[in-house]
């Protein structure tokens, strides 16, 4: 896998498909994803969260599942892969492990910041070309 947080082939396809809507898509993704990452972080900080609680795990699993989809569509390949691992923890595909979950969420946060930087740069490029 490349070191790029975003697959540039995917980005160029998105540019083609979205045409004028491309910057809007990027903005929507950035704001929506920021919320999602925050939600995940908050969920883990909630004293009620426990890696042994089915309800907690299910909620986390759904969050990860949904985020996995949108990041995959946006070409954030590594981020999407991290989401999949988190989803598997949440859905009980693998035995849930609190430390592993916390580590994954923190990796997702870090990776998301990298992805966001790429997209923000894209947005600047779009503005510059107009």
């Amino acid at each position: 896998m490349s070191n790029n947080p975003v697959d540039f082939n995917v980005l160029s396809t998105l540019r083609d498909v979205m045409e004028a809507e491309y910057p809007a898509l990027l903005k929507v993704f950035i704001s929506d994803s920021t919320l999602r990452v925050n939600d995940m972080t908050l969920l883990l900080r909630d004293p009620a969260f426990a890696a042994t609680s089915t309800a907690s795990l299910q909620r986390l699993g759904l969050m990860a599942h949904s985020f996995k989809g949108s990041t995959g569509n946006m070409g954030a390949t590594h981020l999407s892969e991290l989401c999949l691992q988190l989803e598997e923890q949440g859905r009980g595909v693998v035995t849930a492990d609190d430390a592993r979950i916390r580590s994954l969420v923190s990796q997702i946060r870090d990776e998301f910041f990298l992805v966001r930087e790429v997209f923000e740069r894209e947005l600047e490029l779009c503005h510059a070309s107009h």
Binding site: L14, E19, S70
Partner: peptide, 16 residues
């Protein structure tokens, strides 16, 4: 789709 960016992307593809 509850995911707003996915919805946007898919709408664009289907419209095209």
């Amino acid at each position: 789709d509850d995911n707003v960016s996915d919805r946007m992307l898919l709408s664009a593809i289907v419209s095209r």
